[in-house]
Design a protein around this nucleic acid. Structure first.
Lengths: 344, 344
DNA sequence: TGCGGGCGAGAGAGCGCTCTCGGCGCCCCG
DNA sequence: CGGGGCGCCGAGAGCGCTCTCTCGCCCGCA
C-alpha cells in the first residue's frame, strides 16, 4: 500500500500527460481548463489515489484551511453538560463542506493560554472560535489586531466584539419569569449567575425585565452557576424571604441545588415553590420533579459561529456582526402542576 | 502589529548575525550550538516575536505534529453525556506538552466518513485516535496499512487491534452484579447493550460471570443503550419474570428508562427492585432515587490514548498494546436501602 | 612548529505546491 | 489571406523550513 511515498502533483501531471499548472487548476476548480485535460487529470488523480499535500499548499497560499476552537478551561463548567458537545457539533456541521479543518485547543492553565495565544497569532490558523471567555480576556483583541478573524460564542463583558453569537439570555430569563408570573406566582426570587460574566448579567436583567413589567420586585442572590452555590443561594433566600413562591435559577445546576434545599426543608415543588432553571441540560429531564428550564439552540449557535467565521475568512461583508439566537422555555413539573410535564 | 509579514527564520538569522542553520538548530534543541550563538538567536527570536511556520516545517519533515480525533457520529449517543467530554479532556491533557495539535474530525454521514478516511491516510496527520467505532469498521486497518499509527478508544469487535484503550467493562459489570448479590438479590435481570458492539458483549459477560460464580442465571433482554430501549426492555422483563428483584442495565439511560417503567408500575426502587446502571453519567446523581452506576475513568482513558499514540508516533516500543483501565461502582440509593447514598 | 581531529557554523538543495507569465495555437474579423 | 485577440497550457520561481555536506577554526599532541 505505502508505495514508498505518496504521489505528488508532478506524478499526476506526468500520468495525465499535462503540466503541473493544469493539475493545480483542476484541483482548485479553475475554469481555465479544457474538458479533455480536466478529464485526464481527474482520471490520473483517481488512479494514483492522489491527495494534495496541505503543508505545501499552505506554505505558498499562506492559508492553512484550519480554524481553531479555543476553549479556556479554567472554568470547569464548560465541559460539563451539553453546552460544549452541542456547540461543537454545530460548529462541525457548519464547517463540514467548507474544506476547513477544526483544531481543538483546550488551555488548561494560564501558561497554556499564553502559549496558544502565540500559536494562534502565528499564521497557523485562518480563524479562531472562542467559547466561554473569561471576563475581560484580551485574547480576542490580540487576535484581531494580528489579523486573525475571531468569532466569540457568548458576549464578552464590556467591549463590543467584532463578531459574536449568543443565545438570547435576557429574553430567555424574561420568558422564564413571565411563565412564573403567568402561573400566579408573585414572590419570585432569583439565584443569579456571576456578574462578571455577561451571561450572568443578561439573565438577571431578563428577570428584572419581567418583574418590572408587572410592577414587582424580588430578592436576588448570586451564585457561580454550580450546584453548591445554588444550595447556598437557596438557603439565603429562604432566610431572607420565607414566603417566596418561586425561584428562577440562572443555571440548571443551581436549580438542582435549590431544589435539594427545598426538598430537605419539606417544601413542596411546585405547589409551594416553583423552580425554573436555565440551559435545559440533560439533568433537567431527570430531576424530581423534572425541571422547567430555558433551552438554548446550541447546535444552531455552533453552526452560526462557523458561518460567521467562514464569511469573515473569505472576506465577505458581514450583515450582522452580533447574532442573538432565540431561546425557548421547556415547561416541566417543577413549575407546572403536579401532573404531566408539557414541552415547549 | 502585522508588519507586512511575519518574520522568517532568515530574518532571525540576520538579526542574530548567524546562518539559518544555526537558528534551526537552536529551535530544534540541537546540542551542537555554542552558548553565545544560542543566546543571540534566542534574543533575536524574542525581539522579533518569531514563531516557526509549521507548514514549511511539515513540508520538509513530513510530520505535521498533528493528530486527529475521529468521531463517527452516526451514533448519536457518543456526544451525549460526559463520555465525550471526559475523553477529550484527557486526550488534550495527554497531548499538552508534546507539541502535538489535536484535530477534531466528526463524520456526520457516510460520505464524510469516506472523505475523511482519504484525508487521514493522506499524510495530513501523524496519528489518529478513534472513538466509538462501529462494529467491523475497516478504518483502523486502512489507517495502519497506510502507516498511520492508530489508537482505539474501546475494543473493536472481532479483530485484535494494534493498540487500544478501554475500560474494564466486563469487570465493572461483574462488580455491579456482585453488589446486587451482596445485597441479597437473587433474581437479577439485565438489559444488555447491542451485541454487535464489544462494550455490549463485555458488560453482558460480566453479568454472567457474577451470576455463574454463585450458581445463578437470570433473564436477559437487549437494548441499544437508549432510554426508550430501556423502557422496552424493562417491560419485557416484567412480563417474562414478574418476580425479579434487581436489574442491571448496561447503560445509564437504559437504567433511567427502566426506572421510569418500574415507577409507573408502582414498583418501589430499591425495596422491590434494585437498579444499577453503567457509565456514572451526570444524570445518575439526579434521578429519583439516585442511580447506582459503574464509573469509568474517562479522563485517564483519554490520557492513556494520547500516551500510547505519542509513543507509537515516536517509534517507541509499546509495552502493552491494549490497556484496560479499572472501573468502580458508585453505590447510590437505587440499590442501597432507602437511606443515604454512599459513594465508591 | 606542524598536523590531525573535532566541533560549530553556513551554503545549498529541495520538500510539494501555487501563481505569474510568456507562448502557442485557433478563431474571427477585416 | 493576414493580424489581433483569446483561451489554454507549461516553465520557472519561490513559499519557509530542515538537513546534509563542507569548510574553517581551535586545540592538543608529537
Amino acid at each position: 500500500m505505502t508505495s514508498g511515498r505518496r504521489p505528488t502533483l508532478e506524478a499526476v501531471a506526468a500520468r495525465a500527460g499535462v503540466g503541473r499548472g493544469t493539475v493545480s487548476r483542476v484541483i482548485n476548480g479553475s475554469p481555465k481548463v479544457s474538458p479533455e485535460a480536466r478529464e485526464a487529470v481527474l482520471r490520473a488523480i483517481d488512479e494514483l489515489g492522489y491527495v494534495p499535500n496541505r503543508a505545501a499548499r499552505a506554505l505558498v497560499t499562506r492559508r492553512t484551511d484550519t480554524v481553531a476552537l479555543f476553549v479556556s478551561e479554567s472554568e470547569e463548567r464548560v465541559f460539563g453538560e451539553p453546552y460544549f458537545a452541542g456547540i461543537i457539533r454545530g460548529i462541525s456541521a457548519g464547517l463540514a463542506d467548507t474544506g476547513l479543518q477544526l483544531l481543538l485547543v483546550i488551555a488548561q492553565s494560564e501558561e497554556e493560554h499564553a502559549r496558544f495565544e502565540r500559536y494562534l497569532t502565528g499564521q497557523h490558523v485562518d480563524g479562531v472560535l472562542l467559547i466561554s471567555l473569561h471576563g475581560g480576556d484580551p485574547l480576542p483583541r490580540h487576535l484581531e489586531e494580528n489579523g486573525v478573524p475571531t468569532v466569540l460564542g457568548g458576549k464578552p463583558v464590556g467591549v463590543v466584539p467584532v463578531s459574536c453569537v449568543d443565545a438570547d439570555n435576557r429574553g430567555g430569563a424574561r420568558q422564564a419569569v413571565e411563565h412564573l408570573i403567568g402561573l400566579g406566582r408573585r414572590r419570585i426570587a432569583t439565584i443569579g449567575g456571576p456578574q462578571d460574566m455577561q451571561v450572568g448579567v443578561d439573565r438577571l436583567d431578563g428577570y428584572h425585565d419581567a418583574l418590572a413589567a408587572v410592577g414587582l420586585t424580588g430578592p436576588v442572590v448570586h451564585g457561580d452557576f454550580s450546584e453548591e452555590s445554588g444550595e447556598r443561594g437557596m438557603l439565603e433566600l429562604l432566610a431572607r424571604e420565607p414566603a417566596l413562591d418561586a425561584v428562577f435559577a440562572a443555571s440548571d445546576p443551581m436549580a438542582v441545588g435549590a431544589m435539594r434545599v427545598l426538598k430537605e426543608r419539606g417544601v413542596h415543588i411546585p405547589r409551594e415553590v416553583a423552580v425554573v432553571g436555565f440551559d435545559d441540560s440533560s439533568i433537567a429531564r431527570h430531576t424530581d420533579p423534572p425541571l422547567t428550564s430555558v433551552h438554548q439552540p446550541l447546535e444552531a449557535m455552533g453552526r452560526e459561529m462557523a458561518r460567521l467565521l467562514v464569511a469573515r475568512i473569505r472576506g465577505e461583508e458581514i450583515d450582522r456582526p452580533v447574532v442573538i439566537l432565540d431561546t425557548h422555555l421547556v415547561a416541566r413539573a417543577s413549575s407546572l402542576g403536579n401532573g404531566r410535564s408539557g414541552a415547549h
